[in-house]
């Protein structure tokens, strides 16, 4: 019994030290200069612009990833027009972004679409900037968050099997109706869970965005790259304020995830 107490106590101490204290420290640090210091840190025009950029990227990336993620998961599980071997290959490719360092993810986009690359120069001539502009940042984030929704939805699709969908098809339902009336109700909570994961990852994406955006003030700076720049400029209180906003979002998303998890299991 005492051993049991010891282990539990040790776990508490460990979690407190490793996870609890750091989060509390950010909150304290943000209020180093009192409320006004925090308000100043978040209310700076560059901070507001950076938070807006982050918000825009979150919305665009989440919408694109949800649509393509759900469809791709459906194809990878159900499609008969893909051979088994091809399906297996594609399935293992889905995971690749997990293995790619965000910095490398950003580098790939700069190499392919940057001003020095053939394709990038062509687009540049047409007046479309990809690198050091919003499209490149969205692309980089799309790459990094690509597997999240697919990996949540695929196991559920495999588990429920195709028999209900086949029944609906036999009864003459259109594919669209079948999807909304039969498939969607059983995968909806997994999709929501994947979406929350995507939002959290997009909010926090740093390496890939830093490389692709060039971190240009008032143009391509996002919340995370602003924190980085503030720290580099020894403007720690301001960095803390923005970091606290981001951390609060993540903790909120985490709580929401717990709720979705409990819904998913029911």
């Amino acid at each position: 019994m005492t051993i049991r107490r010891l282990w539990i106590g040790l776990t508490f101490v460990l979690f407190g030290l490793l996870l609890g204290i750091p989060v509390v420290r950010i909150a304290i640090g943000a209020f180093d200069g009192g409320w006004s210091g925090f308000i100043d840190g978040v209310g700076r025009p560059e901070a507001l612009h950076a938070l807006m950029m982050t918000g825009m990227i979150v919305v665009i990336v989440t919408v694109i990833n949800t649509i393509f993620g759900v469809m791709l998961a459906l194809y990878l599980v159900r499609a008969n027009w893909l051979g088994t071997q091809l399906k297996r290959l594609l399935n293992s490719i889905v995971d690749l972004p997990f293995a790619v360092s965000p910095i490398i993810g950003g580098l790939m986009i700069v190499l392919l679409l940057g001003p020095d690359a053939a394709l990038g120069a062509l687009l540049n001539k047409a007046g479309i900037d990809i690198v050091y502009a919003l499209p490149g940042m969205v692309l980089a984030t799309l790459f990094v968050t690509f597997p999240l929704i697919i990996r949540e939805v695929m196991p559920v699709l495999q588990e429920i099997g195709a028999s209900q969908e086949e029944a609906a098809h036999m009864l003459g339902a259109y594919p669209w109706t079948t999807f909304w009336r039969v498939t969607w109700p059983s995968i909806q909570w997994s999709v929501v869970y994947g979406v929350v994961l995507t939002v959290a990852r997009t909010l926090g994406e740093f390496g890939a965005v830093l490389v692709v955006s060039g971190n240009i003030l008032f143009k391509t700076q996002t919340a995370t790259t602003l924190v980085y720049q503030d720290v580099e400029n020894f403007n720690v209180t301001a960095a803390n304020s923005v970091a606290l906003v981001l951390a609060a979002c993540s903790v909120g998303l985490l709580l929401f995830m717990e709720w979705v998890k409990s819904r998913k299991e029911n």
Binding site: I21, P22, V23, R25, I26, G29, A200, L203, G204, E205, F206, G207, A223, T224, T225, V227, Y228, V231, V236, A239, N240, A243, L246, A247, S250, V251, L253, L254, M257
Partner: peptide, 14 residues
């Protein structure tokens, strides 16, 4: 869930 830049800042402060 936490952004990695925020994690870096935490460790920097602590």
């Amino acid at each position: 869930a936490l952004p990695t830049a925020v994690v870096g800042l935490m460790i920097l402060l602590l």
